[in-house]
Simulated assay, not measured.
Amino acid sequence: MIFGRRAFPGAVADFEKAVRAQDTKGAERAFSRLHRLAGKARADACREAGPRLAALLPEVPPGPRAAVAVVVGACVERGADALACAPGIFAGAREAFSAAAEFCERWARTGDDELPDLDDPLTDEIVERTGYELAVGWLTLPQWEMAGVAVLNARATRRMVEGKAELSALVERAAEASGHDFKCLTYALRVLDDEPLLVLHRPSGTGYALRMHGIGDNFQLHTLLAGVLIGGEHLPGEAPSAREIAVCRDAPGQVPTSGAFNLVGADGGWIFNEGSPSDIRVVDGARLLVLDPPPYRRGWPAGRFFPGMHGDLVLERVLGADEAATWLGKVAPSER
């Protein structure tokens, strides 16, 4: 039992020592052991290991660096400080996505065949066409995406300013160059916290000022809106169950639900459930969402796009009749 408690911290220490000594073979052996033990490590060992491994990332060569970042992400999921781990992961992810975008552009210039799949092995042909570091950047993107989402599950990390905007731009550039959407990381970087949301219910002419936190997609937002507005008896309709609301906030699992509204932007365009709350345009300083009757019955599994991210939607006040009418005067009819 004592050996079991000490095995993972010992592997972390051995890996640190080998990396700093530039002992490639020793680092490979230590990381193999570290990776094998990570899934069974105690939570207190993970809390200690996460920031130590994250700080070590710049010293790890590009090839194995992404695998180490995944272990850091796993430590965060077991309780390591996400904010302390985020800078190392963001820096590695920025480097990888920058290299990946250049990889895609160079690949296109050297032939007309499709890009290698992201789960393909690194081959001599790939390296010859683009160079080792660009190829590694491309092929490790799934690992960087996984690690990035792990730290972005924490609100404190999402509120970071330094490095996030640059990473978002690089992910977008790689997506444009490759045609791959990197949806998980893209959506995680777009999550809004402490964000005001002004909601107008067109059939009744009423309006509501809300605040949203940690909502990954509009399926989750839709269910929470119905819970607050219908469940709170502000609007007519069938409210989601307590369980449907719970899984959209912080409870595990998914349960079937159905749509209560059609979500529409101020310009009349539909706001699709598959999108994210960041798709809702800002009008006069507030994200403005219009609720119309659903054109047909739609169902989906209520839950969270990011199971490790807690979300919430809070009603702050009901707009007065004149205020609601003023805001409704600024929106266009639904396009459909």
Rank of each mutant, 00 (worst) to 15 (best):
A108T: 07
G237Y: 03
R6Y: 03
E172T: 06
L53M: 04
G92F: 09
A7D: 08
A147G: 09
E335Q: 10
G73A: 02
A38C: 14
L37C: 06
S241A: 10
K25C: 00
G269H: 09
L200V: 04
V19T: 13
I271Q: 15
Y132N: 01
G92M: 11
A45N: 11
E128D: 12
E95M: 09
E59D: 15
G4I: 02
G311W: 02
P301L: 12
A286K: 12
P196H: 07
G111T: 11
E166N: 05
G148A: 08
A147S: 09
E128I: 00
R297E: 11
L198Y: 06
R281V: 14
G268I: 02
L57I: 06
F15K: 04
I215K: 02
F306E: 07
A66P: 11
L289H: 13
C46T: 03
D284I: 08
G227K: 01
R29A: 15
E176V: 01
R317G: 01
D217H: 13
M1W: 08
S241H: 13
A226L: 03
P293V: 12
P142Y: 08
L235F: 00
A21T: 08
V60I: 07
P203Q: 01
L56M: 05
V12W: 09
H180E: 01
R20S: 12
Y208Q: 00
L192H: 03
R155T: 15
D124Q: 01
H213G: 04
